[in-house]
């Protein structure tokens, strides 16, 4: 019985193991119609969809940012120096993420894990900063239900915070899985995928930081 029959002049189709989440147990890259791996394509599509999610939330915020009734408004509560630092920390984490992807491509497990953990820590720091910011705002009289401004602000930045948190969980899990050698296939691609997500979350934050914090000030 013949092994995989390759038709004349044609690449072998993706005939085995259409894996989710990069668990390629067969080794060897898949041949896809576009040459782009399924996982990466799916991640791009997902991020495209996420753009509209944040687009909707940002639009809501832009519509409502001036409507704070008698409650505190953006000019009163925002602490621009702090948020600038936290934005910078998040941007730094993008840098460490790039280094993680580089290490993964060089098949350097040790540094991959190191950079992943550094990225995760910076991300956790950002989330911590957001928790601090929310707590402070709340105590300054800006509750979730106070005004349209507050509801849309907390929803927008909260959604972003949840995305960062999920990203941190992914990074930690990835570092752990690499450590246990559970990824037998193309590690670099998995790291790259998480990296794509992480960069996306950072870019969204740059947009939010600009539109929410900087422009009204």
């Amino acid at each position: 019985m013949a092994d995989i029959t390759i038709h004349e002049g044609a690449a072998a189709p993706a005939d085995h193991g259409h894996d989710d989440h990069g668990h390629d147990d067969h080794g060897g890259a898949h041949v896809t119609s576009t040459g782009l791996s399924n996982n990466k394509l799916a991640m791009w599509l997902f991020l495209g969809s996420e753009c509209l999610l944040f687009g909707g939330l940002i639009s809501t915020y832009m519509l409502y940012r001036g409507r704070h009734g008698g409650g505190p408004g953006p000019a009163q509560v925002f602490d621009i120096p702090l948020t600038s630092v936290s934005s910078f920390v998040l941007l730094m984490s993008s840098l460490t993420m790039v280094l993680a992807v580089n290490s993964a491509k060089r098949l350097d497990d040790r540094n991959t894990r190191l950079w992943l953990m550094a990225t995760a820590l910076l991300g956790a720091l950002f989330v911590g900063g957001q928790v601090y910011e929310f707590t402070a705002f709340y105590q300054e009289g800006l509750g979730f239900t106070t005004s349209l401004f507050s509801s849309s602000f907390f929803t927008l930045t909260g959604f972003h915070g949840v995305h960062v948190t999920l990203g941190v969980v992914m990074l930690i899990a990835l570092a752990a899985i690499i450590g246990r050698g559970r990824i037998s296939g193309d590690k670099a691609e998995v790291v790259e995928m998480v990296g794509l997500y992480w960069h996306f979350v950072d870019v969204v934050w740059v947009v939010i930081f600009t539109l929410v914090y900087l422009i009204p000030a």
């Binding site: 956790a124 911590g128 969980v169 930690i172």
Partner: peptide, 15 residues
């Protein structure tokens, strides 16, 4: 737990 510990500790310091 790890994430929660970092977030908790850091935000308390900041507060």
């Amino acid at each position: 737990l790890g994430l929660g510990a970092v977030v908790y500790a850091f935000s308390r310091i900041m507060l």
